[in-house]
Structures are given as structure tokens and as C-alpha cells.
Write a protein that binds this DNA or RNA. Structure first.
Lengths: 222, 222
DNA sequence: ATCGCTTTTCGTACGCTGTACTAAAAGAGA
DNA sequence: TCTCTTTTAGTACAGCGTACGAAAAGCGAT
């Protein structure tokens, strides 16, 4: 063993702001946002901590940057298409992006200044609503409503102890046991008669609310 | 000046888990969640850092604890009342609690195991919906929808750079200037024709979405 | 090649964090 | 006053973000 093993990188690509942010996203995905430290990020890129500071001013800029990278993954809605369909697709786009990167939801609260991709996303969404004939005020209402629902759903999804598709029952069983005192009969009921049924996926709840919201919006336009 | 000034406490009340969590909430409210450190918390209570560990196992337990304290401030809905009114009041109760303690929203994503107050709140809400005649499945739908909307709204509210009532224009003016390139015409439109109008308060948007959601739910019950 | 200048990388060090371990102090009952 | 339990602290350590300055690498002109 003549050499200590290089951490990951094949041949040490040249650094760049984009590569730093990209690796930061990967690291956060793999190990959680808490494990994303300047030191761990540098190591995953085969560099030293202080080298990163040539491309980013500080860690906050990294956090702002990776949130914006998540937004950049989302396909923009088109003002040319049917607004309802576009809003449906956008909602699913945002949700799936936030599901791929669950740490992003928690970051939204603390990051105040939006990045370019975020702004583009906002702009395209507002444009689609306005093009559909919503008034300025109604567009503001609709936008606040849709984003609240999407972000809130993603927030709940991120807080779930289990990971969607694979057995909710395995994880929730011990939690449910905590309810067996009878203190929480309705939670028990929901758990046993709904959540613990085979094939249950919390993500499936998304469409119910989304359609209800879109129905309401189309009604309030007419 | 014979004595160094005691930080805050009038006469150093006896410590207790409740007092630790209460002071933690106060400190987070005043200085932000980032400023809530074991050391700063101990100092604000007139104690030394390690003394706190007699009442809490670690900092995570403090974070879990203060989230649950926020829930404990929220009045529970009653299964005896009109479900729509109860859900309306609950929604506003949750939102105002999360507005008083904006840091709580960001914490929700990372804390997985809910506390007692949280569970009681869930239970009462589910009970109210079931009592109103919603099926088990419909109750799950309604609950996911309502909570998503409420949490998402609170999340957006917490991320706002300005603080509700007082002038949105002062803060947003420089941001709007960033749009004056014409890249974001619809955001400009919303800003100038809606957000920057005197008396605008993002919080007022809450009722629009909430009523739309409640309308949709009552429709889907019938 | 060699110089000089810009761009990029990194070593060291500082103050902050959570907390493990241990000891001291305070309180309570005999 | 002695003893035992409960409560409070001191010290120390590893890990964090990052300020500062030096080293290295790249590169056009001589």
C-alpha cells in the first residue's frame, strides 16, 4: 500500500463554483444536510477546506446555492399551455424535486434571498396564471395557495420517518404501540385502517389536495 | 460596581425541565434559533452550561421540546362544534403560533418524533373531522391537505424578509430594483400592483386559501 | 529558460459549538 | 454532625466556520 486512498474523485476535476455546489447537493442527498460541512465537502471533492472559499464567500452562500440548484431541476410551466395542466405538472415537479432533496424544504425557511432559478420559476408560474386570465390579485392568491400546499406537503413528507414506497408498517409499528394505551383512538384508527394498509403511500395524498385546490381556483376564476 | 451584572434572572428561580424549555423558546424568539446554544441558554438563565444537562439529555431533546411547547400553545378543536368553524379556528391557531415562533417551522422538517402536545393536537383534529362525518380515508385526505396548507403558508411567512404589518415597501424596494432589468415582468407587476400597495399584508392571503380548501372539503363530504 | 504577475490552492490558528467525565456543592433525613 | 441523594459546575476535547497569509501553479513577455 504505497499510497493513501484518494477519497472519491477519479482524477480531481478542476474546481468551479458549479462543481462545488453540485457536490454539495450530492453530499446533502447522501448524508443529510447536517453532514454537509466545509470540511466534509472538501474531502469529498479531494481538496482542502480553504480551497472552496475561492469559489464561495461562505457557507451561507453554499446553502443558498444548493437551494437554487434544486429549483433549477424543475421544469418551468408554459404560459402557452392549459393553465390547469401546467399548474398540475409544476406542482408535481416541485414536489418531486423536494422529495429528491428533502433537506431543501428545511432550508427554505432560513434563506431569504432567492436565487436566479428560483426567480425564473416564480416568473414562469406567475406568467402562466396571468396568461390564463387570472387578475393580478387572483394570481397572488392562487400563487400563495399553491405554493403553501406544495411546500407544506413536502415539509410533511420530509418529516416522515419512513421513505415512501417501502413498508410504512415496519417503522410505524413501534410508534403505534405507543398509542395502544387508548389515549389516541383516532390516530389508532387512521393508522390501522389507512396508513398500515398494504400499498399505502403518503405521496398518493398529494393529488387529492392538489385537485381540490385546482378545482377551487378554476371555480373562483369563472 | 462591586458585582458583575447578573444576565437577566431576577433571583435565579430553581431550574426545571419546563423552565429550561420555556427559556429556550424565549431565547429563540428573541434572537433566532441559530443563537440558541447551550451556552447562551445557560447564561440567559443565570446558570452554567452543564447544569442544563441534568434536565435534558442533549440539545436535540431541547429542540424537540420547544417544538412541542409551540403546539401546546394552540387551542384544541372540539368534536362537539361545527367542524368547519373548528377547522377554521384551528388553522388560525396553528398559523399564529408558528408566526409567534417562526423558527418552529424549520424545525419540523428535522424532528421526526412528535411530542405529547403535538399528538394531542393531532388527535383532537382527527376526532373533530371524524365526528363531522368524514370517512376514515376522507379524514386522512383532509388532514394532509389542511396541514400542508397551514405549514406551507407558515413556511413562506417565515421566509419573508419583512415582518408583516410594517412597510413591505421599504424592504422590497431594493429587491424590486433588481427586477427593473425587465427580466421578470410578472413579478414586477405583482409587486407594484399588489404587494407594494399600502396596507398589504401577506398574512391576509391566508383566509383566501383556507376558505377555498374548506369549501372543497365540505363539497367532497356531501 | 527566466522573470514577473495573476490565478488558484492550502496550512495554521482562533473562537465558537455540543457534551463526556468528574468533582464539588447543596439539601435532606437520622 | 454524619451520610446519602440531588443538583450544579469545571475542565477538556473534537469538530465547526473561516480570517489571514503564504505557497503553488499557470502564463505571457522577454
Amino acid at each position: 500500500m504505497p499510497d493513501t486512498a484518494q477519497p472519491l474523485p477519479r482524477r480531481r476535476l478542476p474546481l468551479s463554483r458549479e462543481r462545488v455546489l453540485g457536490c454539495a447537493v450530492d453530499l446533502a442527498d447522501e448524508s443529510g444536510i447536517a453532514a454537509l460541512t466545509i470540511r466534509s465537502l472538501a474531502q469529498s471533492m479531494g481538496t482542502k477546506p480553504m480551497s472552496l472559499y475561492y469559489y464561495v464567500a461562505n457557507k451561507d452562500e453554499i446553502l443558498d446555492g444548493i437551494v437554487d440548484m434544486v429549483f433549477s431541476e424543475i421544469e418551468l410551466p408554459s404560459p402557452a399551455g392549459d393553465w390547469r395542466e401546467e399548474m398540475y405538472r409544476r406542482a408535481h415537479g416541485v414536489r418531486s424535486a423536494l422529495k429528491r432533496h428533502p433537506w431543501a424544504v428545511g432550508l427554505l425557511e432560513s434563506r431569504s434571498s432567492p436565487g436566479e432559478a428560483n426567480l425564473r420559476h416564480h416568473e414562469a408560474t406567475l406568467g402562466t396564471l396571468r396568461a390564463a386570465g387570472f387578475s393580478v390579485q387572483m394570481t397572488a392568491h392562487a400563487y400563495a395557495l399553491l405554493d403553501s400546499y406544495i411546500y407544506g406537503f413536502a415539509l410533511q413528507e420530509a418529516a416522515l420517518p419512513f421513505d415512501g414506497r417501502d413498508t410504512a408498517s415496519e417503522i410505524t409499528a413501534p410508534i403505534v404501540e405507543r398509542f395502544s394505551t387508548g389515549q389516541y383512538p383516532h390516530m389508532m384508527e387512521i393508522a390501522t385502517e389507512h396508513v398500515l394498509k398494504p400499498g399505502y403511500d403518503f405521496g398518493d395524498e398529494f393529488d387529492f389536495g392538489l385537485n381540490l385546490v385546482l378545482d377551487g381556483l378554476s371555480r373562483s376564476m369563472r
